[in-house]
Simulated scan of single mutants.
Amino acid sequence: MDMKLEVVVLPVADVDRAKAFYVDRLGFRLDADFPVDEGYRVVQVTPPGSKCSIIFGTAVATAAPGSLHGLHLIVTDIEQAVVALTGRGIEVEGPFRDATGVFHHPGTEHRVPGADPQRRSYGSFAAFADPDGNGWFLQEVTQRAPGR
Rank of each mutant, 00 (worst) to 15 (best):
G27I: 05
Q118N: 08
A13V: 01
D31W: 02
E91V: 11
G94N: 12
I54V: 13
M3A: 06
G49V: 11
H69K: 06
A126R: 07
H69V: 09
H69E: 09
T86E: 05
P117Q: 15
N134C: 13
G133V: 14
G135T: 09
I55L: 12
R41M: 05
T142W: 14
R148D: 08
E109L: 13
D33C: 07
D37Y: 00
D98Y: 02
F96A: 02
D116P: 12
D2S: 12
G66C: 04
D37M: 03
A84S: 06
G70Y: 00
Q44D: 14
V43W: 00
T58A: 02
Y40H: 06
I74T: 08
F21G: 04
F28S: 03
Y22T: 05
E93Q: 11
W136F: 14
G70E: 03
G101C: 11
G27S: 07
P48R: 08
Q118F: 15
P65K: 01
V83R: 12
T76F: 13
R97P: 15
M3F: 10
P113Q: 06
N134Y: 04
Q143Y: 08
G147W: 14
V83P: 01
V12K: 01
V8S: 12
S67W: 13
D37F: 06
F128K: 05
V43S: 02
W136P: 04
G39H: 13
F137V: 02
G94R: 02
G27E: 15
V82R: 11
D14C: 05
Y122E: 05
L68W: 08
Q143I: 10
L5Y: 08
A127T: 12
Q44V: 15
H105N: 04
P11A: 05
A13Y: 03
G133K: 08
A18E: 00
P113G: 02
A115N: 10
H110Q: 15
P131R: 04
N134I: 02
I55W: 03
T76C: 07
V141P: 01
R88M: 06
G114F: 00
R120G: 01
T62R: 13
A63R: 13
V60D: 11
D24C: 12
P113M: 14
Y22K: 04
L73Y: 09
H105D: 06
N134T: 10
L5M: 08
G114V: 03
D132I: 04
H104L: 01
F96C: 05
R148L: 11
E6P: 01
H69A: 11
E140N: 11
V7G: 02
